[in-house]
Amino acid sequence: MSIFKRLRDLTMSNINAIIDKAEDPIKMTDQYIRDMTEDLEDAEKAVAAQIAIEKKFKQLYEEQEALVNKRNQQAHTAAQAGNADLARRALEEKKTAEGKLTEYKTSYDQNKASADNLRSKLDEMRKQLSQMKSKRETLVARYNAAKAQTEINKAMSGFSSDSATAGLKRMEEKMLQAEAQAEASNEMSAGNKSLDDEFEKLNKDQGVEDELAALMKQYEKQ
């Protein structure tokens, strides 16, 4: 399976559609983030390997390019010195180096194009992973808000102003009933005074009457 298969198959629009249908969108998003993170790590290794190959061929063709220039200069130097044999040998090695230069340059161009393509895909994967992480934060906020709203609706489903008013009225009726019972109890308690209580009250009343009579009699004499 290609390292970039997920990038081709799971565009953000496809991922969004799958997440919207998921029973738990947060868990689904976390799974995609883990998968994309693993793919990104593999892709980074693949790109690094491709870049290493690109640099190797660049080094090889630059070495042959330098050798071509060197042998060409040496051939001119030998010719100026009248040494045809040495000039010939320099030109022969120059010819061989030119062949290798062409081969290495072609390989370098091909590998550079592949590396550039992988770099582009790697940047796209990083972008999608960043978008997925941002989407997760939005999903968490929306999910928690929806969950809280559901709990509130559930709590409010058994509550209404009519039921609250009826409940308050029942409480008032019970309070009035309790107060009436307390008042009746007091009256019954007052009606059930003992004989000793009655005589004690009578004695208190008689004492007041005696004191009043004495007081009135005192002022009559004056």
Rank of each mutant, 00 (worst) to 15 (best):
E137C: 01
L86A: 07
E172R: 07
K100G: 13
S157E: 15
A52Y: 13
I152F: 03
A184C: 09
Q59P: 02
N72W: 06
E98K: 07
L67V: 04
L60S: 10
A81F: 06
K100V: 01
K112E: 05
A184N: 02
Q59I: 02
A184T: 05
R71H: 02
E65V: 00
S161P: 08
F57T: 03
A164E: 12
M156Q: 11
A75M: 05
N186F: 07
D123T: 03
N144S: 12
A78S: 08
S120E: 08
A84I: 02
E172C: 09
A78I: 00
T102Y: 02
Q64V: 05
S114A: 07
F159E: 02
A178F: 01
I51W: 05
A97W: 00
E62T: 03
Y104T: 01
K100C: 08
L122F: 14
Q80D: 10
E124F: 10
L122M: 06
A146K: 10
A146W: 08
V140L: 12
S161N: 11
N72I: 03
Y61T: 04
K95S: 12
L168R: 09
E151P: 03
R142W: 15
K154G: 15
E103Y: 11
K169R: 14
N117E: 11
A166N: 06
A115T: 11
S120T: 05
Q131N: 14
M125C: 07
K70A: 09
Y108H: 14
K55A: 12
Q80P: 00
L86N: 00
T165H: 10
D109V: 14
R71G: 00
A75H: 01
A52Q: 15
N153R: 10
A145W: 00
L168A: 15
N117F: 09
S161E: 12
A87C: 11
K55Y: 06
S185W: 05
R136Q: 13
K154H: 13
R71Y: 06
R119M: 08
A164F: 13
Y143D: 15
K56Y: 15
E54F: 12
A115P: 14
K169P: 11
K147P: 05
K100D: 04
A184H: 01
D123P: 00
K135I: 07
A141N: 11
Q181K: 13
Q50F: 08
T150H: 13
E183D: 14
R170A: 13
G99R: 03
A90C: 06
A87K: 01
R119C: 13
Q59V: 10
L122V: 02
K127I: 00
R170S: 14
L176R: 13
